[in-house]
Design a protein around this nucleic acid. Sequence first.
RNA 1: GGGGCUGUAGCUCAGAAGGAUAGAGCAAGCGCCUCCUAAGCGCUAGGCCGCCGGUUCGACUCCGGCCAGUCCCGCCA
Length: 583
Amino acid sequence: MIIDELRNGFSAALVAAFGPEIGEVDPQVVPASNPRFGDYQSNVALSLAKQLQQKPRAIAEQLIANVNLSYFCKPLEIAGAGFINITLKPAYLETQLSALQTDPRLGVEKAQHPQREVVDFSSPNIAKEMHVGHLRSTIIGDSIARILEFRGHDVLRLNHVGDWGTQFGMLIAYLREVYPTALTTADALDLGDLVALYKKAKARFDEDEEFREIARQEVVKLQAGAEDSLHGWRLLCEQSRREFQVIYDLLDVQLTERGESFYNPLLSAVIDDLTKQGLLEENAGAKCVFLEGFTNKEGEPLPLIVQKSDGGYNYATTDLAALRYRIQEDGAQRIVYVTDAGQANHFAQFFQVAKRAGWLPENVEIVHVPFGLVLGEDGKKIKTRSGETVRLKDLLAEAIARTRADLETRLTTEGREETEEFIANVSKVVGLSAVKYADLSQNRLTNYIFSYDKMLALQGNTAPYLLYAYVRVQGISRKGKIDFTQLGNSAQILLKEETELVLAKHILHLGEIIAEVERDLLPNRLCQYLYELSQKFNQFYDQCPVLQAEEPWRTSRLMLSDLTARTLKLGLFLLGIKVLERM
RNA sequence: GGGGCUGUAGCUCAGAAGGAUAGAGCAAGCGCCUCCUAAGCGCUAGGCCGCCGGUUCGACUCCGGCCAGUCCCGCCA
């Protein structure tokens, strides 16, 4: 990457000017804070002033005298208090861009040390419908997985579905009573009815002591492997799985299902090992590990319960077992959990227990990637008009339907005729892209206000705006009957106009952005980059005729347009978004 | 009571491993289609970066305290 080359150049200059011990300091090369300061800047002279007992500008001068970057940078300039401004030579940019012409990775390097990484995301519950709460985990998790995969990591995408535990005892016990066929015959009930029965079962569980006991017995039967219970359970899982798959197919998300039940045989070993470590204590009949740094209202240490007083295990036990399995059997070097921010406490707690139990080798990193809630336009938790949780299926269908309505209106006003197939496809791609992009383009830590009108808007930082920029490039190739792959190896990119230079420089930043997203796991940075790319392309498109330009500018501009489109396509792919040729 | 996250323009949000006058979009106002889709581009206006202190040559960014919102806090996940 260009920035690495600059860093190396500055580090060498630091050694040459001030000796090897100074060579260790960070050369502080960053993208310029403002275009009028050039392309990059180094702030190292300011921070060295005290240590070297010299004025920043004097340090900067000595540095510049020792920097050897003239083969691709214009003469370095000192500005302000001692900033060193760096501007790249257009000829160098032209060469770099030409090199991208044949590079399918568009300059994005592979990770130097590829790792085995687990991304745990989506995680819906069996016998319930996916709702808006699963939206962010699914979309953000998928994008993170795509980016890690593209960087060359060996990624295991795990769907830790809720397919075990108390709620199943409850549901099965209730079905035995009111609708036993559901436990013996596949698809006896549709999922909507199942969800309704689940709610009734829950209500019954909460108020009926006798039923509670029956439900508990059912959990014990299930965990012990009783065939009739297992059979019913499998039917429920099978049905839910198919429903989930409809959504995953629609969203183009790949996942390996490995639910909570998978870890059932490993739970007792967690308890045994914790006992051996001397971490386990019994309190009011429950087995727990008392935590450091977590206290209750009275200031006493808070426990993490790993075995309930009735002998059953809970999610903390499962999460610990899963963590061990992923490290020992999957060989994970990094485990990323994409769940809502409300679970931050839980993760901090079970991470602590895993650490204290010695289950976390030095080279393994575990990280919770939290995200905020999805809110309605009133700023409150999103609900349907009748106050129900919004089903994901309905939410996506609505986005597609609204896109279709917008599209049809536009076709009418523009007098365009399009086939049903075209309309259906554009509506689907734009609608789904809009939902994904609206989510991803926001810093995931904050709550996010869900608005169809905003996400489907044709202007601003939205999916339709980016898709339109891509479509514009394809429009050029259609109109001019250009095959971008046949522009010829000898063709040169020439950067003359300001908008061409600005666009070119932006294209060359992709690698830096991807590296940043990989480090911080913040896909909104990539969205920001792609939005700016689209803006810069539109400015170029406005200022510079392409097809009508004289050679060699015509070919150069065609190449620049194609590079923009390929960068957009790749970037959007990493967000899980498809492009369109026309819209 | 403890803890997490958030607080930046009227609205929705960027920016935070410290760096030069704080950025977009929407909404408002004004321009630009004989020319590759105007689903676009340009211009104008709009800010005690929640408050108070501290560290630093330099703080929206780091630290401490306070205020507000929100979520979580022993046998649900």
